[in-house]
Design a protein around this nucleic acid. Structure first.
Lengths: 341, 341
DNA sequence: CTGTTAGCGCGTTCAG
DNA sequence: CTGAACGCGCTAACAG
């Protein structure tokens, strides 16, 4: 490894001068700077981040915590965060939490051990109190996909209720009055919200969703069991005696599962039953029927969250908005049919 | 931040003793150790990774470079690497290369600046010479999804030719003799190999693939244009006058695109035309028809690559195999039809 | 078994 | 504008 000292020796200047040149610090003679820079380049000098972080007490690192990375939704968070970090020359550290609050905490602490104070967390199950405490200690801690009231200016989130309402409104416009909803009850606000908005909307229109058509499983992580879950949901919906012309799924993955289960039962989508997704993953566009869904601008949100974190830890922070709410939008494709009434 | 010195003061011992306790170094009195440990816990001491890395000249870091992260295939690499790293208490840094050799190099160098010497690279386009040179400097540099002969013991790769042969063999068994192949010609060996195996196999059986049925586009990154590419490919195949009963796609994403394009042209899959994928992404199981495909054990490979890298940099390395080849396997689902002849 | 000493590579004073 | 001196938090010799 070639150090600042080595360069100084060759250049015939002091280490501090080299340091100044490396950092682009102003107080170096023009000629001297050019000369040192030349030697720097020739010798292929690369700063030692660890030494830097140690002495300057700041590491150019962004840490991200997501439940996993193989699901495209979370991969997109990592992707967006990396993209934003790179424009600031920050490096990205990442860790999977597997939806485990303890691992999540451990991840955050590990990042801090590395001097990383820009941390983006996608957590659904972590304890609010803990996060509030943590946020005090870590100015650059940002939550994505979660809204914690006491931490409003640290949360980059999506209005799930609005999304659900958009979904409901579109179905209503397309003539649907017999709706079903398929989601999970995991104590997670997202999932409740995505049902709530639809309920609200239809209620306002004087249409009620039959309780038997609301499937709100307590299954925590569908993952592998997802196909089975969808199958059960469809069997239940087809056999409970209530009419269904359209289903609002918690997300695109569930929507796909439901569509497959419907096909397996001899139902056509959307001719017999329409299905709405949520997220607008790539797959929504690559499957047949192409999914009508609600776009979740997750890459943009991750980029935003990263920049926001950097703002929060900047030496001269510019003014920071106190709310960071993103709005979902409707993406019309082929999984919803207009029905005449 | 609470340091080893703070703890030492409170415990009434020297910093080195605390350091020994922290690191689990043997030479500390039993009682003394217990006492220091207690204070360590009480004070919530957390080691400073930067200081550690600086003095010990090793950082417990694994760096991974992939083209992107939003595609599940690469997300899976990150996922597997993180999983393996975590079991060794290593932290993961990651960087997207966007298939750009320069960014790739910069990523590797950035990792090194952080003292990270365990680096996993998924590169298709990077220059071999450069990598050979780099590998000399970085003992923990491992390539995944690529085979470089001079760096055999650093490459964790999949036998694409074998995969392609398996694909071909299965189609042959199912009675298919009129095959098409859809891939890219980007100078990338993977893509050529996945055609080569099929060609080989059919040639051995005395069946030749019509040249017009081999689509080998020079499109570099299909990405957004993928749907269009697939559409063009299908139009070409349906109109070139050669019979086609089955198509071997470069990967699952392309397979999906082809299926969609076929459906749009009024062809049924697999009743009219069968389609084989490659990779076995989650989506292969969640689409209809479910994809018959070749499983690429990418998560396992990423875990393996990470452990391999750790082996290569271990103080007391155990014996290391000099080849790390993974074999693809057939996953039978519904996109291939048995035809009678 | 424990404490003392001496850096790791760098940024940041403070003199000159 | 430049250099010398100091210390970030920690580990690794070396004494005792």
């Amino acid at each position: 490894m070639i150090t600042i000292k080595d360069v100084a020796r060759v250049a015939g200047v002091s280490p501090s001068t080299v340091s100044r040149v490396v950092r682009g610090d102003g107080k170096v003679g023009k000629k001297c700077r050019a000369e040192v820079q030349k030697i720097l380049d020739e010798m292929g000098y690369r700063p030692n981040s660890n030494a830097r972080a140690l002495v300057s007490r700041k590491s150019e690192l962004v840490g991200i915590v997501t439940p996993d990375l193989y699901r495209p939704f979370f991969g997109s968070i990592a992707h967006g965060a990396e993209k934003a970090a790179r424009t600031y020359k920050f490096q990205v550290m990442m860790r999977n939490s597997q939806n485990d609050a303890l691992i999540e905490l451990d991840a955050i602490n590990s990042f801090r051990e590395h001097g990383c104070e820009n941390i983006i967390v996608s957590s659904k199950f972590g304890d609010e109190e803990t996060f509030i405490q943590l946020a005090k200690e870590i100015p650059g801690l940002i939550f994505i996909n979660r809204y914690i009231k006491a931490l409003a200016n640290r949360c980059v989130w999506l209005d799930n209720i609005a999304g659900s309402r958009i979904s409901a409104e579109y179905l209503y416009e397309q003539g649907h009055r017999d709706i079903a909803v398929v989601s999970f009850d995991t104590g997670n606000k997202d999932q409740a919200d995505r049902i709530e908005g639809a309920k609200q909307f239809f209620k306002e229109k004087g249409v009620s969703i039959a309780p038997a058509n609301i499937i709100f499983s307590t299954e925590k992580t569908p993952g592998k069991g997802q196909a089975l879950f969808c199958k059960d949901a469809i069997h239940h919906l087809l056999n409970n005696g209530e009419k269904v012309t359209a289903i609002i799924a918690y997300n695109d993955e569930i929507a796909l599962g439901l569509i497959n289960a419907l096909l397996d039962c001899g139902k056509r989508v959307p001719e017999d039953i329409s299905v709405m997704g949520f997220d607008d993953l790539n797959v929504a566009e690559n499957c047949r029927p192409q999914l009508t869904t609600i776009r979740y601008p997750i890459v943009e949100m991750a980029e935003y969250a990263t920049k926001l974190s950097l703002q929060h830890t900047a030496r001269n922070p510019t003014e920071i908005k106190d709310t960071h709410l993103f709005m979902p939008t409707l993406v019309k494709r082929d999984s919803v049919l207009k029905i005449s009434r």
